[in-house]
Design a protein around this nucleic acid. Structure first.
Lengths: 185, 185
DNA sequence: TTCGTCATGTAATGGGTTACATGATTAC
DNA sequence: GTAATCATGTAACCCATTACATGACGAA
């Protein structure tokens, strides 16, 4: 997941680690909290070793005449390599059932702009199925055992059901949209 | 978190590990997926060593005359001890800021029926504050950078904003309810 | 008798966090 | 000059998962 996210962001533009973390927090804000440096930097190292990213000299900036604002200490700017781009596409396209999971779905979704239509549809439909099942679970609990649950547990179940229901509807919309654009475009 | 959840469930009634996992999945279904055995059994061992739970002989059942349905293999039924109950209350009452986090909030909420009113209110209000901040984050991104985001990233931000907004409203309701019941009751 | 599910458990591994250490740069 | 924030990195740890191993019980 981190690999995918980092490659995806560096695909948009070169960046150093600190900045990457901030961008990651924005891009994936709806999905997970910001990752820690203890996770980020070793991952960058690993991606570099794998040849998917490289250190780019401090950004050439718009104007070469301006000595780029005093070069800071380490400040390593990374950019994605050709192999990195391939790897990224691979991660985007070779989706298994993990892509429907909470943790992975959001990250995949965040890079849908670079994902093939059929893959997008497969992910959205798989996700929908998953959430429908979850919703069914809540319904069953509420139907069969509601009277045995305390008020708060009950409230939690209802809240879960509502959330699942809304997500299904959201996904329906997205799926309908994909199909429409698929035909039209 | 697992400690709290297990102690809480065993507080309701004695159970063996396998059953515990299923109950956990129901009770915390809105929060997280079912935990694995590789996590559950070692934790039970640890709780037992700490003296918070003990093995109860296979349930005496309603009728002592009936040899309880052929004792299955291991099938270890655990029950909470007096120290376990103390520990449970401790975990419920001594809430720090972690209790507002996604991971902990749901578990705490699930056992609100056994939590003091003032603690409930503190948790709900802390949680609300946290989600309000998150909501603010989405608003800022959408206000400042919407035009620079692709359609899917944008959609994710909107979805996040909506979800945060709904959760805040949900929490408001719960808080209002707590205050009302606090005065009336 | 065989399949599903009940039931317990371990070992290897993984993916992350926290805490710490260091130092440069910017704003007051 | 000093506090905040930018910036990178490591080591220790934690919590949980996966994969595996084992075996009993009930129903077909």
């Amino acid at each position: 997941m981190l690999d995918l996210a980092i490659l995806g962001l560096l695909h948009e533009s070169p960046m150093h680690g600190y900045e990457l973390r901030k961008q990651l927090a924005v891009k994936l804000g709806a999905i997970k909290a910001a990752i820690s440096y203890g996770s980020l930097y070793p991952t960058l190292r690993r991606l570099q070793t794998a040849g998917w990213i490289t250190e780019a000299g401090e950004t050439p900036a718009d104007d070469a005449a301006v000595p780029p604002l005093t070069s800071r200490r380490g400040r390593v700017v990374y950019k994605i390599t050709a192999e990195g781009k391939e790897r990224f596409q691979d991660l985007l396209d070779r989706v298994g059932p993990e892509a429907y999971e909470d943790s992975a779905f959001g990250v995949h979704f965040a890079f849908f702009a670079r994902t093939a239509v059929d893959v997008r549809l497969r992910i959205l439909e798989g996700r929908r199925r998953k959430i429908e099942e979850r919703r069914e679970g809540f319904r069953e609990v509420l139907a069969r055992a509601a009277e045995r649950l305390d008020a708060y547990t009950l409230e939690l179940q209802k809240h879960g059901l509502e959330a699942a229901d809304r997500e299904v509807r959201w996904l329906e919309e997205l799926i309908a949209n994909e199909r429409k654009n698929n035909k039209e475009g």
